[in-house]
């Protein structure tokens, strides 16, 4: 998805993991993914650089669809659709 398309998405669940370091955002994502249904969209907010690489790899493994990244000034928004 393009950045413009991602910006229009309203996620079913927003996980704010800003301020936590590795593996904080991943743990937060794992915890929150259990609270949404298959096909729903989750947005993760992270200020940890590594998350940009970790979340796509995690999605690959868990078979969630990784939708993409939107960069903000001091953090990143990562979007995924639950398998």
């Amino acid at each position: 998805m393009t950045t413009e398309e991602l910006k229009t998405i309203t996620a079913n669940q927003i996980v704010d993991a800003r301020g936590t370091a590795c593996p904080g955002p991943l743990l937060a994502a794992k915890k929150a993914i259990g609270e949404i249904e298959s096909g729903e969209v989750m947005e993760i907010l992270s200020s940890d650089e590594g998350t940009k690489h970790d979340i796509p790899r995690w999605c690959e493994k868990m078979e969630h669809e990784f939708l993409g990244i939107v960069e903000e000034d001091s953090y990143t928004r990562l979007f995924l659709k639950k398998a």
Binding site: P23, L26, L27, A29, K30
Partner: peptide
């Protein structure tokens, strides 16, 4: 260890 748990 904790990262691995998050990695299922």
């Amino acid at each position: 260890a904790t990262g691995a748990v998050a990695y299922d």
